[in-house]
């Protein structure tokens, strides 16, 4: 099998997998990046959300070959030590409960803030409605995004 070269969290990684393998399973099983989660396999729940050139995508329906030549960012690469404004806001607003969906929530939130540093509630609904949370942390996610947006807008990050 020809190795496939991927750029994950700033590093080039060579993987030997079938080109139609979903990116999710390459990240989790081949590269050991377990922070990205499997929830539905059909892009309905968003637990598998990662960034592809900064865009939030569902890695469960994105084949590894589609990711070649693009920058892939997973939760492990969102910040060096949990220092992204969203991660800090997630802690201060006590967002997670079981936590299983939160990597996807954070990646979707990060893509939103990168585009709209001061999102409205409608922006948040639009960007975040693809990521399910069965524990019901939506209210806190909304609050945390607004809190992080304040910090981004004040220029404490970047």
């Amino acid at each position: 099998m020809e190795p496939i070269h991927l750029t994950v969290n700033g590093k080039t990684r060579a993987v030997e997998v079938a080109p139609d393998t979903p990116l999710l399973w390459v990240l989790r099983d081949t590269l050991g990046l377990k922070g990205t989660k499997f929830g539905c396999g059909i892009a309905e729940c968003g637990a598998c959300t990662v960034l592809l050139d900064g865009e939030a995508i569902r890695s469960c329906i994105t084949s590894v070959k589609e990711a070649v030549g693009h920058r892939i960012t997973t939760i492990e690469g969102l910040s060096a030590a949990g220092g992204h404004p969203l991660q800090k806001a997630w802690v201060s607003e006590e967002v997670p409960q079981c936590g299983y969906c939160q990597s996807g929530q954070l990646m979707a939130g990060a893509a939103l803030l990168a585009k709209k540093p001061k999102p409205t509630d409608a922006d948040i609904d639009e960007a975040m409605s693809g990521i399910l949370c069965r524990c019901g942390t939506y209210q806190r996610i909304r609050r945390a995004i607004h809190a992080a947006a304040g910090e981004v807008a004040r220029g404490q990050h970047r």
């Binding site: 990046l33 377990k34 922070g35 990205t36 997973t74 939760i75 492990e76 969102l78 910040s79 030590a81 949990g82 991660q87 997630w90 802690v91 006590e94 967002v95 997670p96 936590g99 939160q102 990597s103 954070l106």
Partner: peptide, 10 residues
């Protein structure tokens, strides 16, 4: 909560 930091960094 003590489990939050791990739940936001993957």
């Amino acid at each position: 909560r003590l489990d939050t930091p791990e739940k936001v960094n993957g």
